[in-house]
């Protein structure tokens, strides 16, 4: 029991250190790879707690490898747009000037119903009102309405 307690303390310290090292991002803002790594870290860290026969190093080494690669690749992605595209993908424009780009939706494996559902969550109920709708690399939908565009042009003038 005491062994479990000490392991829990050690792993807690290790996980906190790793989370701090990875930096601040909310779950909704994470790239898919970051989210997967975060989930993997929690799964791997729990292994020595589930089975006393598994050494703590069996969790520590993979954790170090995951977080190190995540940080190094993130840093390299800042310097290289090709690597960034490889790791994170690229944004996909799904609506242009009120018209849905079906091919773009197909690449995202989404239907028009899915898109309309996502638009409704942004309080947009008419596709014709949309100037641009873009699915970002983190899966969020960004919408520019025709009205907003007009207002911005008037402000510039």
């Amino acid at each position: 029991m005491a062994v479990l307690l000490i392991r829990a303390v050690l792993l807690y310290a290790a996980v906190i250190f790793i989370i701090r090292l990875m930096g601040k991002r909310q779950i909704g803002e994470m790239q898919p790879s970051e989210l997967v790594i975060t989930i993997l870290i929690s799964e791997v860290a729990s292994l020595p707690l589930q089975d006393k026969g598994i050494p703590v190093l069996y969790a520590a080494v993979p954790l170090v490898v995951f977080v190190s690669f995540e940080i190094i690749l993130s840093a390299l992605s800042l310097k290289s747009s090709k690597l960034r595209t490889l790791m994170q993908g690229h944004e996909v424009i799904v609506i242009r000037n009120g018209k849905i780009d079906i091919d773009a939706l197909r690449t995202l494996r989404m239907t028009v119903d899915d898109l309309e559902g996502a638009l409704r969550q942004k309080d947009v109920f008419d596709v014709k009102q949309v100037s641009y709708a873009i699915f970002e690399t983190n899966g969020k939908l960004s919408v520019l309405l025709k009205d907003d565009e007009t207002k911005k042009e008037k402000k510039k003038k």
Binding site: L21, G23, S68, I71, I72, A75
Partner: peptide, 17 residues
């Protein structure tokens, strides 16, 4: 600083393994 720490940890993990 994070990258240096990450690289150091990775090197340590590889060598240790």
């Amino acid at each position: 600083k994070r990258v240096i720490v990450a690289l150091s940890l990775l090197a340590f993990a590889v060598v240790s393994a």
